[in-house]
Every structure is written in structure tokens, then in C-alpha cells.
């Protein structure tokens, strides 16, 4: 099957008209270049607060590129132009304190990457780095974040065991716990379940649905069932362009763009 040429000017992008306070983070004409390669063109999305937004699209379409720009993880590998508006500030500006910003915009990666430390230390490590010393407070945060990540019951007796003794799915939930221990506003997840078995995957999904009460979640996924199960909004990426963005239900049932339709009906990708 040859890949069809789609018209990249034909787009259907939802823009929120309501109260701007409902928008947690937004990008305006975001461009990302890896050397000469223009990997993301005119990225223009707004993310509603306390919702889960899925980024879908074929491999290489620029989902990770876009996501990693949001907390400036691409700083050293790519050139990023355009605006990323978070709380009235442009995250992409050189004046931003990147380290401070990343505490507000947390990220969980595709492969679980706990530190080679104990389960407890995985969570307290970054807090201690920030200067939090109070043991009681630390213990409290450990318990709360592990509960939030739905891991507490499984590990509460083994907090001093190494994080590597956990299963892949537990490790990933520990990574989520570690991230939310920083009390971020926004949670970025890049295919957090793609390396996991179905049971672990559904645990992660339940966790995310629970977390959206307090966090704005943006998740890259290859799994369309997952996108339609857990997300409120879905953005479709294709060859570096964002072609469609809307309510998940609408995107999956009545896509307005031919490329989206072809992708979700499995014609490519």
C-alpha cells in the first residue's frame, strides 16, 4: 500500500472559546527542527485543564517531538521556535528557568526509568535535592504519591527495596509517583504503557483517569483503544503536521480529515 499524499493545509483544529483559565498549556505555531529536518510544522494546540489529551499518529509523525518540546527536553538536540504558553509565560523563552519549569510540567517516559535507588529514594530524591529535609513530610509525600499512582498497596512493606526489584508495570507506576511527588500541574507521558503487559497497562490507565481530577494530562499513544478509552481530547499527527484536534469521540467517530479517517481505520501507520 503506497502512502497517500494528503493536503497538509486541510486541518480541523479545535480552539477553545471559553474562559482562557480553562487552558492549562497551549502552543502557538510551534516549529521543531532537527538540523535541517523540519520535524514539527506549525504546532498549534490548546490543552484543557484537568483533561486527558491523546496525541496519536503513525511512527515518526512528530508526537514525541511535540511532547518533549513542552518541557524543553529537546533543548540540546533540536531547534524549537514558536510559543509555549503556560500560566501566561512563554516556556520556550530563553529567560525561563528550565529546572523550575520542569517541576511544574512533569514527564514520564516510554521505558520505565527508575533510579538505581530504593523505592522510597526514587520519590524523595528530587525533593531532597530541592532542600526538603523533614523526614515526616517526606514519608507523607512518599505515601501520598504512591497511593496516587496506585502502587502503595503493592510496595508499602518494601519501600527500602531497590526499584529494580519491581515489575515493569510497577516501575512505570513508580515513575509516575516520582513525577507527581513534585506536585506538577501538567503530566506529559510518552507511550507510558507500550512496553507493558495488558494488566499493567489497564492499571496505568485507571491511574491516569484518577489523576486527571488534579492534573492536566497529555499522553502520546499508539494504542487507539487506549486513546478512546481514557482521553477527552485527541490530536492527530501526520508527518510533522497536526491535522485534526477535537473531542476524542468526534475524532474517532466522525473524523473531518481524510488522513485521520485513514489512520484510525487502519489504512496506514
Amino acid at each position: 500500500m503506497s502512502i497517500e499524499k494528503y493536503d497538509f493545509n486541510e486541518k480541523n483544529i479545535l480552539h477553545f472559546k471559553q474562559d482562557k483559565h480553562q487552558i492549562a498549556i497551549a502552543t502557538h505555531v510551534l516549529q521543531v527542527y532537527y538540523g535541517n529536518k523540519h520535524a514539527l510544522v506549525d504546532g498549534d494546540l490548546e490543552f484543557e485543564r484537568y483533561r486527558i489529551t491523546s496525541l496519536i499518529g503513525a511512527s515518526g509523525s512528530g508526537k514525541s517531538t511535540y511532547l518533549r518540546s513542552l518541557n524543553r527536553m529537546n533543548d540540546n538536540v533540536a531547534k524549537v521556535e514558536g510559543k509555549i504558553i503556560y500560566r501566561g509565560l512563554d516556556v520556550n523563552s530563553s529567560k525561563i528557568n528550565v529546572y523550575e519549569m520542569r517541576k511544574h510540567i512533569g514527564m514520564v517516559f516510554q521505558r520505565p526509568n527508575p533510579f538505581s535507588k530504593s523505592i522510597r529514594a526514587n520519590i524523595t530524591f528530587a525533593l531532597k535535592e530541592q532542600g526538603l529535609k523533614d523526614k515526616k513530610k517526606l514519608d507523607e509525600i512518599v505515601e501520598l504519591s504512591l497511593k496516587d499512582a496506585a502502587l502503595w498497596d503493592e510496595v508499602k512493606d518494601d519501600l527500602d527495596k531497590s526499584a529494580w526489584s519491581l515489575s515493569g508495570g510497577q516501575q512505570q507506576r513508580l515513575c509516575i509517583a516520582r513525577t507527581i511527588a513534585m506536585k506538577p500541574d501538567i503530566l506529559l507521558l510518552d507511550e507510558p504503557a507500550s512496553a507493558l503487559d495488558p494488566i499493567s497497562t489497564s492499571k496505568i490507565e485507571e491511574t491516569l483517569v484518577e489523576l486527571k481530577k488534579r492534573y492536566t494530562i497529555i499522553i502520546v499513544t499508539h494504542n487507539m483503544q487506549q486513546a478512546s478509552r481514557i482521553s477527552d481530547y485527541t490530536a492527530f499527527f501526520h508527518m510533522g503536521h497536526i491535522l485534526e484536534y477535537g473531542k476524542t469521540k468526534n475524532v474517532f467517530t466522525t473524523p473531518q480529515i481524510r488522513a485521520t479517517n485513514d489512520y484510525i481505520s487502519g489504512n496506514f501507520g
Binding site: 518541557n71 520542569r102 517541576k103 521505558r111 526509568n113 533510579f115 535535592e129
Partner: peptide
């Protein structure tokens, strides 16, 4: 693995702290 560096950076650690507190111990 680079994943460990990203883990540190994503938690708001500076590069130097990531290297000395995460990478070096490993």
C-alpha cells in the same frame, strides 16, 4: 542509559546534579 539522564532532568535537576547524583552512583 540516557534514560537515567532524562529521568533526572525531567525532575528539574540541573545537568551537573543529574550527573553527580544519578549517573555517577550508577
Amino acid at each position: 542509559p540516557d534514560l537515567q539522564r532524562e529521568a533526572g532532568m525531567a525532575l528539574g535537576l540541573s545537568k551537573w546534579r543529574t550527573v553527580t547524583r544519578v549517573i555517577l552512583p550508577e
